[in-house]
Every structure is written in structure tokens, then in C-alpha cells.
Design a binder for these strands. Structure first.
Length: 213
DNA sequence: CGTACTTTCGGCAAGATCCG
DNA sequence: CGGATCTTGCCGAAAGTACG
């Protein structure tokens, strides 16, 4: 493009770490940035409106003596700073998204493991196995591989878990059975009482209504 | 080592957005 | 509404890399 030569522009050191001039062979911006923080680095990230307006008023005195070329250069310099801030924010967003993505992948793996433990044949796990290269490789490997022994150990754990679960369910069912037997016993005794009562009442009054519970 | 290609960085310009 | 800043695309320069 028709970019003016950089040497004609005012230095932009107030916005950057000295990258206005082309980097030398020894200069590494990535390493230099933490050492020489940019003036806008405390923003993180929105540029405060107070600072915007403050810079306006701070410049009013200068504007009167600045030539149009200087005003233009100043504008370019500010825009360069804004661009740098924008790129920083974009990089930060990208980093955060990457970290979040990694965290979510880790969490997904944990949940899949948990689900596999409880319900090995869940359809979601089939899809997960298809999507996960490590899972497919372990499932297609021969039984003699280390991953196969890991699978067997996992299956043993699953079976033990089922045994424990069924034991608990068995205890619960036994308890319920006992409660039902008690209730049945009680109802039988009530019925017996009523029956004997009715029997004695029928002898005295055969047409009286009976409670058929 | 020279060359072609890619990547990274930063400035510029134009339009969008914000705010007093 | 006007000015300051943000966002975005484009571009050039420098560094990095692959290859003959």
C-alpha cells in the first residue's frame, strides 16, 4: 500500500515496546513484552472512557501548535496503539478459548470414564469411542497388550460395582418384602376381626351392611 | 549458500462504535 | 453530532524454514 516511510513518523514507543522500528535479529517481541510492559497493559482490557477524554483535554494545548501533518501523525500513532491493544485482546481471547477447550475436553473424558463405569453400553460411549483415537486403538488391540489388561481391570471394577449395587438393591427389596409381609399380616388380622364380628352380628341381624374393604 | 515460500509483526486506512 | 477509540482487512518488512 501507500504507507508512508516509518522514519517520517513520530516514534510509537508510548504504545509499544519499541517495535516501531523493524526488529533486529536479536529482538524477540514475545520475550521482550513481559519485561517492558506496554503503557496500556493495565487495561485488561477495555480502554477506560476517562482516559480517552483525559487524553483529549491533555492534547488541547498541543493541538494549537501542531501542524496538520503532526496531527495526522499523532492520529496514526494513536491508531497504531489501538491496533496493538486490539491484537493483544485477540490473542488473549484465543488463549482463553484454547484453555477452555482443553478444560472441556478433559472434563468430557472424565465424564465418559464415569459413564463407562456405570453403563458401559451407553450409546453415547459408542460415539465417544468412535471419536476418540485412543479408545478405538485400545478396543481393537489384542488382549495381550497392556491396554487390554487395563480394559480387563476396568471390567472387573465394573462387575464389583454391579455386585455392590445389587447387594444394596437386594437389601432394599428384602426390607420392602418384610414391610409388605407385616402389612399383609396386619390386614389379615383386621379382616379376621371384622369377619368374626360380622359373623356374630349376622346371627343377630342378618341384613346389616358390611364394610367390604 | 541462494532462493522461494511461509509466518509473524506492526502500521495504515476505513468503517463501526462509544460517549460527552 | 463530533471526536476518540475500536475493529478489521490489507500491506510490507523481517525472520524462519524447506529445498535444490
Amino acid at each position: 500500500m501507500n504507507s508512508p516511510p516509518t522514519q517520517l513518523l513520530p516514534p510509537i514507543s508510548m504504545f509499544t515496546t519499541g517495535l516501531a522500528s523493524p526488529p533486529t535479529t536479536a529482538f524477540d517481541p514475545k520475550k521482550a513484552m513481559p519485561i517492558l510492559p506496554k503503557p496500556y497493559e493495565d487495561h485488561l482490557f477495555p480502554y477506560p472512557a476517562e482516559l480517552r477524554r483525559r487524553s483529549d483535554s491533555a492534547q488541547d494545548s498541543q493541538k494549537r501548535v501542531m501542524t496538520s501533518e503532526e496531527v495526522l501523525a499523532e492520529k496514526r500513532r494513536r491508531n497504531a496503539g489501538a491496533s496493538a491493544r486490539f491484537r493483544d485482546r485477540r490473542k488473549q481471547r484465543e488463549r482463553e478459548l484454547q484453555e477452555r477447550c482443553q478444560g472441556l475436553e478433559k472434563r468430557t473424558q472424565e465424564l465418559e470414564d464415569a459413564l463407562r463405569f456405570v453403563c458401559p453400553d451407553h450409546p453415547l460411549l459408542i460415539n465417544a469411542n468412535l471419536n476418540s483415537p485412543s479408545e478405538t486403538s485400545s478396543s481393537t488391540s489384542s488382549p495381550s497388550t497392556p491396554s487390554a489388561s487395563v480394559d480387563i481391570l476396568g471390567r472387573i471394577n465394573q462387575l464389583e460395582q454391579f455386585i455392590t449395587r445389587f447387594r444394596v438393591e437386594k437389601q432394599t427389596d428384602a426390607k420392602k418384602l418384610e414391610e409388605l409381609e407385616n402389612e399383609n399380616k396386619f390386614l389379615k388380622s383386621v379382616l379376621t376381626t371384622l369377619t368374626s364380628k360380622n359373623g356374630s352380628q349376622e346371627q343377630s341381624a342378618p341384613n346389616s351392611p358390611s364394610s367390604d374393604v
